[in-house]
Write a protein that binds this DNA or RNA. Structure first.
Lengths: 204, 204
DNA sequence: CCTACCGATCGGTAGG
DNA sequence: CCTACCGATCGGTAGG
């Protein structure tokens, strides 16, 4: 399974696909428990590998954690951002991304919900590379939504007096709230209504 | 320091105040790192006690965790809820609670921000008593705000077509968002504006 | 990618 | 509330 897909001209080293295999599992586990409880031992056991077999791919636990964040970003981009960007510029892109985001949560793209919210919560008060990397991703998301909001304003879809940064912040707050109660249908319905109302208030 | 305040008629056992001392420290630590990383060893070291001296107050780690949640609830109630309830019924109570909540965060009532958000994030995908207890607290908060919203509607302060549950959910989402970026003044300003706009939209 | 190992720490217990 | 201890697991290393 692991080395099953040979790379282009067979040059993809076995180690590369194993690395991806390890990181995807690490991201799955971290979405449930946070990064720190994903010990090298528990990760190895879950993969049917030896501890040092896992460890050999990374120089330290922090490097494993940062690489895991990278793998999670790829999965997120493929699932939410890339499809979202295919929608027409402006409001349509915002709506598409919000819809994909809710599906990304409901479909358990990461089994514990949003990987980034789990890790952000875990590290929010612990300075370091992990925290900074996750925060930068969050800032980026808001900036992207704010840009789309400006596009929508130029297209006359969203009112000119709407503050793009505030609008993006409001949408982010509602999606983040959705993440903590994925198994509560009542809460999920409130999320959808809050997002809907927020967008409706900005339109026209 | 620990046994310094004698109880009524001196009957307060030394063990009781030590217990409180332990739990308050545990709650402080958990607000930063989550509950699970608060090991009995690290807690004991931070208190200048022996491991088993700490452990003796609780039958297991889960009991320590649940007791810590209880102690955190007390601190929260004294800081936010009790003063909030002293305001006049209706909108004034809602505004007072939101203001106290932002102060509770900014003042680092728990050094890592909101204890309950940290623990809720940590346990959101791990079924058990810890998760259920925290969730019940969150449900309770929303129900309380929704009740105050109904009071405000009867007083003619908030429009009748505002859904109290949705309104409470929106306010909760913004405060929760505030918790994850306490050291970012830009984000904190967005929180205040989002709360203000949300309330203004509901008024009249 | 493996076995075998290191010192440190984990939750928990015995006995006082 | 303490010392002393248990088996298990931690991140990491040696050597292959």
């Amino acid at each position: 399974m692991v080395g099953a897909h040979a790379g282009v001209r067979g040059v993809t080293p076995k180690g590369e696909s194993t690395r991806k295999y390890i990181l995807d599992r690490a991201a799955d586990m971290a979405s449930v428990s946070g990064l720190e409880p994903v010990t090298i031992g528990s990760l190895a056991r879950s993969l049917g590998m030896s501890k040092s077999g896992v460890y050999a791919h990374f120089g330290s636990k922090e490097e494993l954690q940062l690489a895991t964040i990278g793998a999670a970003r790829e999965r997120y981009s493929e699932t939410v951002i890339a499809p979202g960007l295919k929608a027409p510029k402006g409001l349509a892109q915002i709506e598409e991304i919000m819809e994909r985001l809710l599906a990304y949560l409901a479909n358990r793209t990461f089994p514990g919900g949003c990987f980034f919210n789990s890790v952000n919560a875990e590290f929010h008060a612990r300075p370091g590379l992990v925290r900074d990397t996750i925060r930068e991703g969050k800032r980026n998301w808001r900036a992207q939504i704010a840009d789309m909001t400006r596009d929508a304003q130029e297209l006359g879809e969203i009112r000119a007096d709407v503050d793009p940064e505030l609008f993006a912040f409001q949408l982010e707050s509602f999606v983040d709230a959705a993440n903590w109660t994925l198994d509560d249908p009542v809460a999920q319905a409130l999320v959808r209504r809050a997002i809907r109302e927020c967008i409706d208030n900005a339109i026209m």
